[in-house]
Write a protein that binds this DNA or RNA. Sequence first.
DNA 1: CGCGATAAAATTGTGTACAATATGTATTTT
DNA 2: AAAATACATATTGTACACAATTTTATCGCG
Lengths: 227, 227
Amino acid sequence: MKKTELFDTLRWQILQLDIEPGSALDEVSLCEAHNVSRTPLREVLHRLAGEGFVRIEPNRGASVSSMDITTMRNFFQTAPMIYASIARLAAENANPAKISTLRDIQRDFRLAVEAGHPRDMAISNHKLHETIGDMADSPYLSPSLQRLLIDHTRMSQTFYAARNKDERTRIMTACEQHDDMIDAFEARDPSRAVTLTLDHWALSRDRMDLYVRPDPLPVNPEVRDAV
Amino acid sequence: MKKTELFDTLRWQILQLDIEPGSALDEVSLCEAHNVSRTPLREVLHRLAGEGFVRIEPNRGASVSSMDITTMRNFFQTAPMIYASIARLAAENANPAKISTLRDIQRDFRLAVEAGHPRDMAISNHKLHETIGDMADSPYLSPSLQRLLIDHTRMSQTFYAARNKDERTRIMTACEQHDDMIDAFEARDPSRAVTLTLDHWALSRDRMDLYVRPDPLPVNPEVRDAV
DNA sequence: CGCGATAAAATTGTGTACAATATGTATTTT
DNA sequence: AAAATACATATTGTACACAATTTTATCGCG
């Protein structure tokens, strides 16, 4: 397997929670698993570290970036601002090629929703928001967007693994919102794009709360205090 | 030289424009210069790439991130928002240890100003804003702050290389603003911290414009078109 | 002289061996 | 039995050799 593939593979494995947050990454086992030597693997790990997927402690190897409660608080604080700014820029910078890409991704997303495949939903959703970030074309904002999306996608696994009818309805709503957002980008309507984006955020935020505080809440007082 | 040192060395060389933006980085010459083999050097380059200091094109090596006019436009658009948000969080999360660090760095900055050492000013200024970012303690905002600071520090070389009295006065003002900002952080006054930060931004912005559009403007029409 | 193909040189990418460091275990000491 | 030490093992870090690729130089041809 080539290095670029390896990078993408590990990236997606992390995003899809195939590799648990916080878990240690053993170099030799990864090498055997992906059929590369340690030299390119380590280079990939260093890049992943630079982009926030992984944490490298000198002489102690790499581990997947963790998602603890304190960072979650920051997440909910920061996400709406970044998403809104990105949306604004994306609407200002919209071009037909990127809009077309967005439509393609959104088609995949809708198919995944109709087929009820949580993994594919999460993947398409990530790609969609990543592409919006590309369209915004802001080298200064996209680092934060990328960092947000890492944790957003990991958390959204819960969101898309819909169990009851209400949750499935929410996913349908999110799907419609995507279409509306793309329409707003295409129409180059920044303020509408921002509004729709914030609505979209609010919808997924309500569900992601459950990731941090799983439903039903544990009644164990010790656990509550720890949180 | 160890790998962590090498990382910092290259980082500062890029930030201080010792290595020109856009210039190619030859692996073997860097190895000889810093007395390491290519393996650790390449790992460092990959990490620098992940953090936005460097750009790696497969099979074509690494080059220092460039600063063209289009990215500059994004810079001025994005910077105030990120700086303000970071300032707010820094004021909310202020703790004595970090405040003390800030005071130390600011002391260095003032010394550099009084001694008239542009390089040291730029370094201290970078460290100061980086530490404010640490204090804000937001894993989602700091990637963008870091990316902004890369270009801000590189541009500020112009700012600190003061030639006339007016420019030196501006630097003095910036120095005072640093103190006021740290006071606001220490007092845990978010809104004041944000206001002061935006003032500080406005001051340096006015000077950095000159970097993008050097004074006096070239009247050559070909150059204008190319830009 | 310009253009394209081909060969040589230089540069980047990968595999492997070995060194340095950290971790785990057994033994000794109190 | 607990703590400390020394040793063995496992893991990470680095150097180097070679493979793959790109860049440069050379040559032939119209």
